[in-house]
């Protein structure tokens, strides 16, 4: 079972993930966009590119309007990024299985902090989704499925870190594979498409002389 999870199932998930993501991104680009013929106030390309990053910082008004979701969102995303790219076992995995090179992992305390942030953040977001009338109105099954899978990936990952039992690592890997297969078919795609949506809007607002 462990061999299957770490062998063929991993390869399968990786292929589904890569092909799926590329297909989704391609289908967005394929939908096409008409060139804007109106004379611009600022460069659309520059504003769009800038917006991919600058839009990560909310405006003061937005911060005031939705503090909870912004804080929980930051906690979850920052925690997740640290776990994904700076946890020692992940770097070892990237080096040995995927890339052929590694980098300095986060110290243990940072790992623990990241795990705490990510898990608490995601619990806060899930609770909010359950109780907030606006979120009840707009949430779909996909929102819950995606959140739950991501949560399980993080939870099993923390357990696996103890490395006391190989089965735990495989269990974590299994959840990662579920996530990777589900990813291209879901809203989890925002991890890639956010750059597109921010750039498109940023370009539009930028051309009109407004900072998005």
């Amino acid at each position: 079972m462990i061999e299957f999870i770490e062998g063929p199932l991993w390869t399968f998930s990786l292929v589904v993930f890569c092909v799926g993501v590329i297909w989704r991104l391609f289908s967005i680009v394929r939908a096409g966009i008409k060139t804007d013929r109106a004379p611009v106030k600022n460069s659309g390309a520059a504003s769009g590119f800038k917006s991919i990053f600058s839009h990560s910082i909310p405006r003061r008004e937005t911060m005031k309007a939705s503090p909870l979701v912004i804080i929980a969102g930051y906690m979850f995303h920052i925690g997740l990024l640290i776990l994904l790219f700076w946890a020692a076992p992940h770097i070892r995995f990237f080096e040995e299985e995927l890339l052929g090179f590694g980098w300095t992992p986060a110290p243990y305390w940072l790992f623990m902090l990241a795990a705490a942030l990510a898990l608490t953040g995601s619990i806060m977001l899930i609770i909010r989704r359950l109780v907030d009338p606006v979120l009840q109105k707009i949430s779909t099954a996909d929102d819950y499925t995606g959140a739950l899978i991501t949560f399980m990936v993080m939870l099993t990952g923390c357990l696996a870190l103890q490395e006391s039992w190989a089965g735990l690592r495989a269990f974590h890997m299994l959840w990662v594979e579920i996530l990777m297969v589900y990813f291209p078919f879901s809203r989890l795609m925002h991890a890639f498409t956010f750059a597109f949506s921010r750039a498109y809007s940023g370009a539009m607002f930028g051309r009109r002389g407004v900072g998005a």
Binding site: I33, V69, R129, I138, R187, T193, Y200, M204
Partner: peptide, 16 residues
């Protein structure tokens, strides 16, 4: 268009 396709793909239903 590409814009709208990316918008729906990106929406995380956060309600902000």
């Amino acid at each position: 268009d590409s814009r709208i396709a990316s918008f729906f793909s990106s929406c995380v239903h956060c309600g902000m």
